[in-house]
Design a binder for these strands. Structure first.
Length: 150
DNA sequence: GCCAACGTTGGC
DNA sequence: GCCAACGTTGGC
């Protein structure tokens, strides 16, 4: 079992949206590194949900991979903001995974808390200049972060 | 709104 | 293949 973190701007898609829907195909990732991480995800892997570009920035809950990587349909939709005219149906460029809601944390584990918590050295999220929307998380880091939820 | 960091594009 | 220009991310 592996652990991951995925970012979303809550104005676009939030933990509350996920809770309502139950499941979500994580479409719109258009970064090769992030795509490759999603392709590594296995059914049942745990995923931290991170709100970026928000009033309260941080980890807001937990999800689980409910379907492994498959082609992101939005890359073929001319009207979609995620449309990629260079991607061919016989060789799709972009993938996504489907995730399901597990829990919303009682409080947000803020970026500030993460920065001040010992033992999170090396967490990719905290690396200077890191903008990846999908990153792996070490098991030890995952446990520490979940432990901060209340 | 600013800007640092980073990825992508395209001319050469 | 290099690299300048440009676009995007995301914290502040």
């Amino acid at each position: 079992m592996k652990y991951w973190m995925m970012k979303s701007e809550p104005d676009v898609f939030s933990i509350d949206d996920l809770q309502k829907k139950g499941l979500e195909p994580w479409n719109g990732v258009r970064n090769y590194q992030a795509r490759n991480f999603m392709r590594e995800m296995k059914l049942g892997d745990k995923v931290l949900f991170y709100h970026s570009n928000a009033k309260e920035i941080g980890v807001v809950g937990l999800m689980e991979v409910s379907k492994e990587a498959y082609p992101d349909p939005t890359q073929f939709l001319a009207k979609s903001e995620y449309y990629d005219p260079a991607s061919k149906k016989e060789d799709p460029r972009w993938s996504l995974v489907e995730v399901k809601f597990v829990e919303k944390f009682p409080r947000i584990v803020t970026l500030e808390m993460l920065k001040q918590t010992a033992g999170l050295d090396g967490l990719l999220l905290l690396r200077k200049g890191n903008r990846l929307s999908v990153t792996p998380v070490e098991a030890a880091h995952f446990k520490i972060i979940v432990g901060l939820k209340k």
